[in-house]
Design a protein around this nucleic acid. Structure first.
Lengths: 213, 213
DNA sequence: TAGATTGTTAATCGATTAACAATC
DNA sequence: TAGATTGTTAATCGATTAACAATC
């Protein structure tokens, strides 16, 4: 059943985008699409789309194409949007607050249950429908509520230490926004590093090469 | 002189990370490093590092390695950190504010000169050391100050329209945070799409495949 | 000089694209 | 049935890795 283990990172990175485009098509009331049409919208080749989808199973129908709603829900299931992973945010500074309120976690398989900060000045503040807890409460909170995903919005210097501690408390997945390449040596822990600074530098590189001035 | 045009996106995407590691080495007072040592730190192969760097020139010295400070500044120059591209943020909601205050633009070749929003309720608010301007002032502001980079922190639905308008006002590069794949058909415009939602879904996929429950 | 490590070419590997038989 | 479009195999392309001669 699990073809999954062999699916390459390049394919997986494209799944959320497929999911997004299919959701948009659903909203527009389209119920059927061919790899050819989708390739036009997404600026991929039809070949690649068919190849990608077939990593997970034959979702299409020869001579007809793909049923949008079915494909959308299949990809959703593969991504895990039907799960509700208990998730905590560590760091309630500007970025932590913005991520907490700006990202729709529940439609992406996550249930946001806590936000923590080390600054006693801001514990008690409301962020979305959560209340900032002091980091000292983390151990007890994790023991009781058993979160499995942590969003790290903390300074570089604190990241590795907090992450190791969280692994000890049962966290299995990290969404890391600190300017630090988090790598966990434990088995069966997943990390998604965001690196906004690197992203901006990539843009600067592009600008540097087109803007002569 | 410009080997640049032929350098692949995969290499360019790695440059900010090299820059970051070299900066860290400088801070630690290391002044010499071999591709072998760096490969250990960065979890790349030494071969790849030498291959990558040689896209831009021979920065090393046979039998010795690379001088950290020199390599750091060379890569910085390639990325364009010594430029000061005038940059505006469009959208002063949670995310716009967080990006504005959280990211160090000036060390990444950007000079943040304005932040705009369509909500009259928040015009006049301070964000970092900027004051939120109403979006109606955008045209005049651009004519006078000539920004070249725009950071888009606006809803999906508004993105394409605002981007097209900004191109007309002289913007050459977009850092796009809306959940929308911005693509500009004009020549010589660069776009860096961030897609935090897709990043979270990639993590959810990973979590879904390790957390059995 | 001997040792180390680069710059660069060649070999391998993986990802993308093309082609087409299977089939709805 | 004929037409369309998938699923899948084969060909191509690009990126990574290995090897080694050049040279500091």
């Amino acid at each position: 059943m699990n073809k999954n283990s062999s699916v390459s990172a390049s394919v997986i990175k494209r799944l959320p985008r497929y999911y997004r485009f299919l959701g948009e098509l659903m909203r527009r009331g389209v119920d059927r699409i061919s790899s050819r049409e989708l390739s036009g919208m997404m600026k991929l080749t039809a070949s690649q789309i068919r190849q990608d989808l077939n990593c997970f199973g034959g979702f299409g129908q020869q001579g007809y194409g793909y049923r949008v709603e079915e494909l959308h829900s299949e990809i959703g299931r593969i991504l895990g949007v039907d799960r509700q992973f208990r998730t905590v945010v560590i760091g309630a500074g500007n970025l932590g607050r913005a991520i907490t309120t700006h990202i729709n976690f529940s439609t992406r398989g996550c249930d946001l249950i806590g936000i923590f900060d080390s600054d006693p000045e801001i514990t008690g503040d409301r962020v979305g429908d959560l209340t900032v807890r002091h980091i000292d409460e983390l151990d007890r909170f994790c023991t009781e509520r058993k979160p499995v995903i942590a969003v790290l919005c903390i300074p570089k210097a604190a990241t590795q230490e907090i992450a190791d501690r969280l692994v000890g408390l049962g966290i299995k997945a990290f969404w890391n926004f600190s300017h630090y390449d988090l790598s966990i040596d434990h088995e069966n822990i997943v990390v998604e590093n965001v690196h906004l600074g690197d992203s901006l530098l990539t843009l600067t590189y592009g600008a540097n090469n087109i803007i002569v001035e």
